[in-house]
Simulated scan of single mutants.
Amino acid sequence: MLKKLAVIVIALFILATSGYFYINHAVNAYLKQSLTVQQEQIVTIPSGANINRAFSLLKDKGWVQTSFAEKFVRRLHPELVQIKAGTYQLEPNMSLNDAIELFRSGKEHQFAITFVEGSRFDEWLALLAKVPYLTHTLGDKSEQQIAKLLGIDRSKLEGLFLAETYHFTAGESDIDILRRAHHKLMAVLNDAWQHRQDKLPLKTPYDALILASIIEKETAIESERERIASVFVNRLNKRMRLQTDPTVIYGMGDAYKGNIRKPDLRRPTPYNTYVIFGLPPTPIAMVGKNAINAAVNPEQSSYLYFVASGDGGHVFSKTLSEHNRAVRAYLNYLRKHK
């Protein structure tokens, strides 16, 4: 009788052990399966979700295969249970286990938004309004209301944000992006102002920002920035009008349709530097770090004029007669390349 009982116990032990190894093998195979994603995919784990909810989300999207082993994961791998809510990016060739480890880490995907140098504040608002995974709060806000929210004591926000790429996680707000961009701008501007050249015709960091915005609109060629800056600094020192087309365009607002006519150059606006002396009242665009540095550290030159060369750059002149020849050459270039 005892011998028979021992045989039964041994058989049950073998059966249990075999069952354990079978289930353990099935669970490991389940976790090692590759996700069926062919490109990067975004998935959001909601607040309060557990690992079973995560499995369901992945199955619903068709990224993992169903298996009875799923219900044994908690028992055999308790270290995988604690996952964190967030929005994550899954990569091709990831395994299910890799995905769960990502959810456990809490390393949410960093989205990016890029603001181009020379763009305007209204363009920034339009771009922010279209960005997915960002909390949109500015749709019904005026520029003055946005300034108040940011603690900026100015009615116009043009130029007060640094143009570059900003990263954010899902759920961050548009006002948070602008706040970071403003703080970054002020840090760069104040640092540049502390290291500016002596005897510049600029009274404040804001003046430097205004000049930087004009430089930004006049050239996209990095090697030209300091020389463009020198022209404007030289003209300011000589009490000459800046006579720069981008300021005219900015002052025209919605009336600008792609061309500047002679009457536009003569029409007074606060920004028309063919009419006013000195700088316009505000920046005319968002700027990058390099334009700010150029504004406060211009090239040492005697240039007073520049005109497009036709190949993307500019021709610089020290006298009006030289400039007029360069203008004629540019017009001739345009006629030949119609």
Rank of each mutant, 00 (worst) to 15 (best):
Y271A: 09
Q243V: 03
A255W: 06
I292K: 13
A291P: 03
Y271V: 10
K257M: 07
K289P: 04
I260R: 07
G278K: 11
I260S: 03
Y274L: 11
P270W: 06
A291R: 05
V275K: 12
N272T: 07
G288D: 09
N324A: 07
F316L: 01
I276H: 07
E299W: 01
V296D: 02
T273C: 09
S301T: 14
Q300V: 03
F277G: 03
N297I: 01
H323Y: 10
V275L: 09
K289D: 09
R267D: 06
T273G: 06
G288L: 08
Q243K: 06
Y271S: 11
I284C: 11
Y305K: 09
K262H: 14
R241Y: 02
P270V: 04
S317R: 11
R239G: 10
M252F: 03
A285K: 06
S301K: 06
R267G: 00
P268G: 08
T319S: 15
D311V: 01
R325P: 00
P283S: 12
N259I: 13
N272Y: 05
I260N: 04
G288C: 08
R325C: 00
S301F: 05
V275H: 05
P268C: 09
R266D: 12
K238I: 01
T244D: 03
H323M: 08
L320I: 12
H323D: 08
V248K: 07
L304A: 04
R266E: 15
D264I: 02
D311A: 13
Y305F: 15
R239F: 09
S302Q: 15
M252S: 05
G288T: 10
R267H: 15
G278A: 10
S309W: 00
L304S: 07
P298T: 04
K289I: 02
N293I: 00
A285Y: 06
E322N: 13
P298D: 02
Y274R: 06
P270L: 05
I292Y: 12
I249S: 09
G278V: 11
Q243P: 03
E299P: 00
K289A: 06
P263L: 12
Y256G: 08
M240G: 13
T247M: 05
S302N: 15
Y303Q: 01
R266Y: 03
P270C: 03
S302Y: 05
D254L: 14
A308I: 10
A291E: 05
D254H: 15
S321C: 00
R266W: 00
N324P: 00
V296W: 05
F277Q: 14
G251R: 02
M252N: 01
E299Q: 14
N297R: 08
Y256P: 12
V315Y: 01
N259D: 13
I276Y: 05
S302V: 08
G312E: 07
